[in-house]
Design a protein around this nucleic acid. Structure first.
Lengths: 198, 198
DNA sequence: GTTCCGGGTAAGTGTACACTCACTTTCGGC
DNA sequence: GCCGAAAGTGAGTGTACACTTACCCGGAAC
């Protein structure tokens, strides 16, 4: 077996666990499967994490932080506030093909909130996400380029609901999901509503 | 033990299972707990359902149908199309305090889509829900009383995403969720957007 | 080459789970 | 009251699961 230094192995365990937890959820992904996916045996998981639950919570924290980081990265070099907001909506990692596979861990975790530590981890993430989005909406509204019809807070809740709702439904793979017969996508609608008439 | 006729017992099993599955999810609610909640022992579950999975799927079907029926009921006697749409948004059983506790079964089921029968049941529900909402949006738009800026299909997807997103997040119980400091609620925003300027 | 630290495995453990089976009890019809 | 059908129980089963333990081994430093 190819050995890895502890930090590398821990990261690899998180990476492989991310995929399995996203697809199967917390209970559905067994420690045997998690170990196999990482190419190790089960005791190695416990070398790095006190329990399966701790691994899951570490992943919630990591995924939450990574989602916001990705989002910030995608909008970083937009010149105009309106463009920046357009990108905020258009490349949302909660729902983008690239990001939502991993973000589903957060969605799966939403089903485990009877566990107080998981609930706490989710609270942290949603609070950080709401704060981030608020900051962006404030910025855009203050520039005068986009509608300030609704407050940044309420707008951010809307964006979060839309992101979560889309993320819940997209994996069903329903034909025509989130589109209409003209090819318009909900993203376009959200963009128009957010950038709306002042 | 007080005996119930088969049809009554089946209904009672579905009722009690609804609460447990909504709270704990499919894997989290054990057959022992389901039986206890119904005041019977485990073999009785198997008298009425071939498996735990079949019970769960029966609940998805029932919950989906009931949600739409409740929705229809709430809007049935609205006089004006605009009022009807306002009610459609305002008393959405996906998110209302009364309905969302049970609707969480649908949300929980969204996490079990690796099971093809559960996936199929969800497909049926979402397709029916989308169809129902489209019908209502068409009706409202044709009356000329509400905006037809966006198609009924795309509008319905938006409403579904918002409902699911809210339903996922509400059980976290975060202070200030879905509101802003003025007390405005996302429901008000959705209403204004849907009834928007023509 | 040797030693030692830390990464890794094979085998196992006790408990929980979905489900079954043999038997009991209830209740309505006669 | 008796009988039979159907509803119900107690005890159990085999398997899966999260986690542990004793031991092994790779690789870097000397």
């Amino acid at each position: 077996m190819r050995r890895l230094p502890a930090a590398e192995r821990r990261e690899q365990l998180l990476d492989t666990a991310a995929r399995l937890f996203a697809e199967r959820g917390y209970a559905g992904a067994t420690t045997a499967e998690l170990a196999k996916a990482a190419g190790v045996t089960e005791p190695i998981i416990y070398r790095h994490f006190a329990s399966k639950r701790d691994l899951f919570i570490a992943l919630i924290d990591r995924t939450g932080a990574e989602t916001i980081r990705l989002w910030e990265q995608h909008i970083a070099d937009a010149k105009e506030p309106a463009e920046r907001l357009r990108r905020l909506i258009g490349v949302n990692p909660m729902v983008s093909p690239k990001g939502r596979g991993v973000y589903r861990i957060i969605v799966q975790a939403m089903m485990e909130i009877h566990d107080e530590k998981i609930l706490a981890a989710l609270d942290r993430h949603i609070a950080a996400l709401h704060k981030f989005l608020c900051g962006e909406v404030v910025r855009a509204q203050e520039s005068g380029q986009v509608s300030n019809r609704f407050s940044p807070e309420i707008t951010s809740w809307l964006l979060i609901h839309l992101g979560l709702g889309y993320g819940v439904l997209a994996p069903l793979g329903m034909p025509g999901h989130a589109r209409d017969t003209t090819g318009m996508h909900v993203r376009d609608v959200v963009e128009q509503l957010m950038l709306g008439v002042k």
